[in-house]
């Protein structure tokens, strides 16, 4: 009965690992890393699991053995109802987890520093994108190219991407699993995320922080393209003749799920900073407050 159960648990664990290996092939998983950040995260993931096996496996193996050997009815096994302490054993069962946690802790400290989402990535020609979380879409502003997109992030493959984030509504979280981790976007604040795509491709991106009815539809494609294609795309967008002005932005900021990605040929200077500053200024109420 119990041995069966333990083996069932193992079966599920194996199924889970198998699922991770196969099922993710076509999915937006960090295990299908397409950039250096996600690749390191994937490496770390398996490393942590492997280290933990030292603690976990003794339980999976030892528990069924103990249960079987010391089941009631097996009179061959030693019965010692008063046995309740063994200092050496106690040293081991404290010592091993402590050791594992010390090692993992060192690893954790190190990896938290190296994989800090705020840390700029190595490489030339960093491209800056300003992402604004709206209900229920992402606006991407390219401050250097003076263009903007909605629900489509086009980046040059092989070049570091620096993303500044904010929100013009409730809290959101920008996540492109195959490129790396997520960071919250919050109104009145600027957060940062640094990613890079190794090779051209189309990568799924999304918001993971619930923000209402349209939440599940708030996703976008990240298109990593060659440098040449990127420049060509910028030129094409600029020529498309549909600028993002303040009025257009106000419409855009209203609750909606766009049918298709949008592209804007021009962006007002400092829009991103104004979206942040809007929440810092007392324009809405309380005019009598003195300085």
């Amino acid at each position: 009965m119990t041995a069966g159960m333990a083996s069932k648990a193992r079966l599920f664990a194996m199924a889970m690992v198998a699922g991770l290996l196969t099922g993710c092939a076509a999915s937006p998983s960090f295990l299908q890393a397409a950039g250096p950040v996600a690749a390191e995260q994937r490496h770390l993931f398996w490393l942590v699991i492997a280290a933990l096996m030292v603690v976990v496996l003794p339980v999976f193996i030892g528990l069924p053995l103990v249960l079987w050997r010391y089941r009631r009815g097996n009179d061959k096994a030693r019965y010692d109802p008063k046995w309740d302490w063994n200092p050496r054993l106690e040293f081991v069962i404290w010592g091993v987890p402590v050791l594992i946690v010390v090692l993992l802790g060192i690893q954790l400290w190190h990896s938290t520093q190296t994989l800090d989402p705020y840390k700029r990535l190595d490489g030339n020609g960093t491209i800056t994108v300003q992402a604004v979380g709206l209900d229920w879409k992402w606006l991407f502003i390219y401050p250097d190219q003076h263009i903007a997109t909605v629900n489509r992030l086009v980046i040059p493959a092989g070049r570091p991407v620096h993303i500044d984030l904010t929100s013009d509504t409730v809290m959101q979280s920008l996540f492109i699993p195959r490129l790396g981790g997520q960071i919250y976007a919050m109104a009145g604040m600027r957060t940062q995320l640094n990613l890079k795509a190794d090779r051209p491709g189309s990568y799924f991106g999304e918001n993971t922080q619930y923000n209402g009815e349209g939440f599940h539809k708030q996703n976008f494609r990240t298109l990593a393209v060659t440098d040449a294609a990127f420049d060509g795309w910028v030129k094409r967008v600029k020529a498309s003749g549909s600028p993002l002005n303040e009025a257009r932005y106000r419409t855009l900021a209203k609750k909606s799920v766009p049918d298709a990605p949008m592209e804007f040929s021009a962006v007002p200077e400092g829009l991103f900073a104004r979206i942040i500053a809007k929440y810092m200024q007392p324009e809405r109420r309380g005019k009598e407050g003195g300085q």
């Binding site: 810092m280 200024q281 007392p282 309380g286 407050g289 003195g290 300085q291």
Partner: peptide
């Protein structure tokens, strides 16, 4: 303080 009064005021 959002541009409003500050403590010493």
């Amino acid at each position: 303080t959002a541009g409003g009064p500050v403590p010493h005021e």
